[in-house]
Write a protein that binds this DNA or RNA. Structure first.
Length: 356
DNA sequence: ACCTATCGTCAGGTAGAGTC
DNA sequence: GACTCTACCTGACGATAGGT
């Protein structure tokens, strides 16, 4: 048997890395019919959107504010129901429709950890054989909680190593959520690119991620010693020559807003020709104030973004209570107006526009 | 007085390049 | 090949402004 690891193992070495993400996406699209125009947003949600474990609802806002009784719980419920209806499943079944990419990546990660780590750990503890040392994963308080709740139902107290295994598994389960952030970010870029390329196939429209500005036609090459400026993604139309410099952010925060501005300044400063270029924000942010700011931001006496694109603006409006006529807050109404005016466009409309 | 919306900051995480 | 360092990602949090 050859020593060489299979391609699958190689990629899964970095479960969240570019290679494994590409592998996963390839598999996802291989099993499915061609993406239908108008339904790109569904792919994004099936691949990347997740259900918040504390509420059981599709995640659309900060978890502390989406707890039962708080304002975003009502909005999360509305979004969850809207999405279930659109995907044609019961609200209790939605969880199985979403989050494919993360669930796959975590499985790869778990497989890789099971293999490598326990062997090494044994070697590390070996010099202390014969001495009492704390077992990893010992968390007496967590064990106590479980025992208090379940004790009466147990015929006998479980042995130590069972406690350790339970506690370790609970801890691993909880820490998993923290890993999601990484995949959501770069995975979002990958998914948008994959969708543009699939829908743009045969129309000479091409999208790429992580493009160095200096390598782009119409911009000065990066000077020696300068750090290359990376663009989240670039879309080029070979027929019309149109190009769009895109920043893809699953969510928005004020520090990222600062970056939008400074990145755009760099783009204009380093431009070597006069051909206009699109400057686009693609996001899944649900916060009305952040969305309105993206629509209204200006730079050099023009809108900062030529296009502000949301994965699914109608999902946002559903969350605000569009269906029940409850879009009452001023900022929310403004979002509604921007959607109606086409200033805040949907991913699908934006992609369709790229293909003209 | 109370409640919500807003928004800056921070922590936890990974990948990937560089170095030895 | 292992380790270190840097860049970058996002969600949670919580202080405070603002509305009723």
């Amino acid at each position: 048997m050859a020593k060489r690891k299979s391609a699958l193992d190689e990629a899964a070495q970095r479960a969240f890395g570019a290679e494994n993400r590409a592998r996963l996406l390839h598999r996802w699209f291989a099993d499915r019919p061609a993406v239908e125009p108008g339904r790109a947003w569904e792919e994004v949600y099936r691949l990347l959107l997740w259900v918040d474990a504390t509420t059981g609802l599709a995640h659309c806002y900060e978890s502390d504010k989406a707890q039962p009784g708080r304002p975003w719980y009502a909005r999360s419920l509305a979004f969850h129901v809207w999405l279930s209806d659109r995907l044609g499943v019961e609200p209790t079944e939605l969880v199985d429709e979403l989050d494919w990419m993360f669930r796959q990546a975590v499985r790869d990660l778990a497989a890789q950890q099971r293999e490598g780590l326990s062997e090494k750990a044994r070697a590390q503890r070996e010099p202390y054989d014969g001495r009492e040392l704390p077992e990893p994963g010992a968390d007496p308080e967590l064990a106590e909680i479980i025992e208090e709740e379940l004790g009466d139902w147990l015929r006998e107290p479980p042995p130590e190593e069972v406690w350790a295994r339970v506690v370790t598994r609970v801890q691993a389960h909880l820490s998993q959520e923290n890993k999601r952030r990484n995949l959501t970010g770069e995975g979002f870029e990958d998914v948008v690119v994959a969708l543009v390329n699939r829908l743009g196939a045969g129309r000479d429209v091409r999208a790429r991620t992580q493009v160095r500005l200096g390598d782009l036609d119409g911009f000065y090459p990066t000077r020696e010693g300068d750090k290359a400026k990376l663009i989240d993604l670039v879309v080029e139309n070979g027929r019309t020559g149109a190009r769009a410099l895109v920043t893809a952010k699953w969510s928005v925060r004020s520090d990222r807003e600062e970056q939008f501005r400074s990145d755009f300044e760099a783009y204009t400063r380093l431009q070597s020709d006069n051909r206009p270029f699109g400057h686009v924000l693609v996001t899944n942010e649900f916060d009305p104030a952040r969305l309105v700011r993206a629509c209204e931001s200006r730079a050099q006496n023009a809108p900062l973004f030529t296009d502000v694109v949301h994965v699914q603006p109608h999902g946002v409006l559903a969350a605000y209570g569009e269906a029940s006529g409850a879009v009452s807050h001023k900022t929310q109404r403004k979002v509604q107006e921007y959607v109606e005016a086409g200033r805040l466009t949907s991913l699908d409309d934006w992609i369709a526009g790229l293909l003209d």
